[in-house]
Amino acid sequence: MPIEIKDLTHIYNPGTPLARTAIRNINLTIEDGEIVAIIGHTGSGKSTLVQHLNGLLKPTSGTVKVDGVDINQKGVDLRTIRWKVGLVFQYPEHQLFEETVWDDVAFGPRNMRLSDEEVRARVERALAAVDIDPALANRSPFELSGGEKRRVAIAGVLAMEPSVLVLDEPTAGLDPRGRQDMLRQIQRLQEERHLTVVFVSHNMAEVGALADRLVVMERGEIVMEGPPKAVFAERDRLEAIGLGVPEMTALMAKLREMGWDVPVSVLTVDEAEKAIMAVLRREARVGTRGDL
């Protein structure tokens, strides 16, 4: 179920003195099963863009097609679009409201008027997908840790069994353990359920590790796009718009400035180690030392 965004512009408060163009002329296609990361700093339009993917915001101009259907056309039932494209907000744990974890996760499927049996099956699958112990199902969501609450909130979206999962800064504010778990679960969801995943992030290391493709936004426009290695190779451009590159990519760039013949497209410690050893071995061979 590809998502096709064409010439999308969104102006908040149009026609008033407060009018502000949040995104401008966005063209973007997201293929089935892809993991796409949207990066850019606060105010660059990332959240505005993702809120168009399930019709939560309506374009000022342009179209958003899900599975070939223009979702803002007359006669399209937006609820069915929201079942297909699940949107998880920033700090979604702030929106938990039911008395138990179970009821919170079941809220969406019940609104879909599914049978009790189907609701039960979906809640169980959703909780399992985010590694929430079934024993917690009858607890109040407010008794859980921050990381657990966020996973329950994501389960609430997963229980609608969407084919596209959109997450706005899923790791913001989590501790390292919570962050590692969240990234592993997103990856697993993509692998096991072949979900299409679109996520917004500030963390260059995590987008490098997880995404197939990066979309870089600045002032409401897409300014760069491509596989992480290709995007990170343009370190100067990223830094000019206030974004960095992963630490290992920065290290390679600085070594190149010092005359090292190492590739620019390095993301991991593994790759950096190999690149550095290759240069040193090559030079040890032509030099006098042969012990490297």
Partner: peptide
């Protein structure tokens, strides 16, 4: 399960 800064991990591997 705290993060190890990549530069420190690389130094140790080298």
């Amino acid at each position: 399960r705290l993060d190890v800064p990549p530069v420190i991990e690389l130094a140790s591997r080298l």
